[in-house]
Design a protein around this nucleic acid. Structure first.
Lengths: 222, 222
DNA sequence: GCAAATTAATGATTTATTCAAG
DNA sequence: CTTGAATAAATCATTAATTTGC
């Protein structure tokens, strides 16, 4: 059940060759400093991923990506201090106020499960009255609430089965494959939360709203 | 191609009681029109989510959310026509050009796995020279590429085991727990892509950059 | 040769897990 | 222990390859 988590490995291998010389310094700090603490495990793996950096860097297409690719760079800690500064403004995670929770809970009870960006924005804006909040907080709240509801249900379902009281839990199955109700799907479609477009209050005087993305825009909305 | 989208379905169940009367009409259209094509399967689910809308709507905190919660509304198709207009600009999914792929592949080979928003922005901006692209495309590309690399590796690993040729695949484990390089983690941290803050070229003259979110900002960058 | 039908790749979204703060 | 935040895995759905029947 829980074992997994195999870890993923980013950075299979460093660009071991070619420091690419002149890195446009101002941007090199953008890359995660890999220079210090060089990863302990560099598997052999000569097969899949290796043998590239030097070559690929020769590509004319990559001209302006030196700073992103050559991460070995130079002074790997110039921005170490900078990294400290950033945690300033509310470096802590969102702590919902009772009012915010009440509203979110109500919306959830009302049936909302996966609000789309405009909705999230609106909600965040509204909840901003009661305390600092960002769109992503709203997004995560629904994600987590939904997920934890599911696992709670699943748990109780199992329990019920074990206790032979499964009779009144028969309707637990959460969702089923159904037809996408816009008919655009070629095959069966399970998800109803997709294909959504932002109509934005039917006023839509704004501008062409892009196909709604998975996540809200992540700009804080307070 | 085609008009995909519209729709959606959040709202597992309609607020079957109380139409909440006066919906602030201008915003009610924001909700997905569920009125037509009422979903075929409305599981019994009297237990979990039901029995709320009416009650919760009495909360004073929810005043401005009528439009979000009461989705049964009124003329459920006034915006049907509007929904047609939106898909104009390239409603199809991103189809990377060879150049874009080359660059992305190179970055990936260079070790990039989970670029953070500023990086994504930069990349998208750069790749925008070769064709339309948004930040989310870049984000998804890395996500998918990484994931599919993993499963490919896993598959070949299994295969190797099965074939007894596992000898030279011993170093496959991808990553290990290590310390977060900004020291902000209290415990061991597996992820390097997290906790990252946008230093933005070390100029950081902008303003307080928020703790970098999971997803990029989703604004198209071309 | 060529379009319709199938299949393979892969972009996009949701769900499951896990990390970590309080 | 609860839950906000983040990543990984599973899936969906679309587009391109490829095949197939003519």
């Amino acid at each position: 059940m829980k074992v997994q988590q195999l870890m993923s490995g980013f950075w299979e291998q460093l660009p071991s060759s070619s420091s690419s010389s002149s890195s446009s310094s101002s941007l090199s700090s953008l890359t995660t400093d890999k220079s210090k603490r060089l990863r302990p495990l560099a598997p052999k793996l000569g097969s899949t991923a290796a043998a590239s950096t030097a070559d690929t860097m020769n590509s004319p297409l990559l001209k302006s990506f030196d700073c992103l690719v050559t991460s070995k760079s130079t002074s790997g800690n110039i921005n170490a201090s900078l990294l400290q500064l950033q945690m300033q403004s509310g470096g802590t995670r969102w702590n919902p106020t009772p009012e915010q929770i009440e509203v979110l809970e109500a919306l959830y009870q009302g049936g909302m499960r996966t609000p789309n960006p405009p909705q999230i924005e609106r909600i965040a804006a509204e909840l901003g009255k009661y305390g600092r909040i960002e769109g992503k907080n709203v997004f995560y709240w629904f994600q987590n609430h939904k997920a934890r509801d599911r696992q709670k249900l699943k748990r109780s379902s199992l329990l019920a089965l074990a206790t032979n009281t499964a009779s009144d839990l028969s309707g637990l199955k959460e969702e089923e494959t159904r037809e996408c109700h816009d008919g655009s799907c070629k095959r069966k479609c399970r998800s109803w939360g997709r294909h959504e477009l932002d109509v934005e209050g039917s006023g839509l005087g704004e501008q062409t709203l892009e196909l709604f993305p998975l996540r809200p825009e992540w700009k804080h909305a307070d």
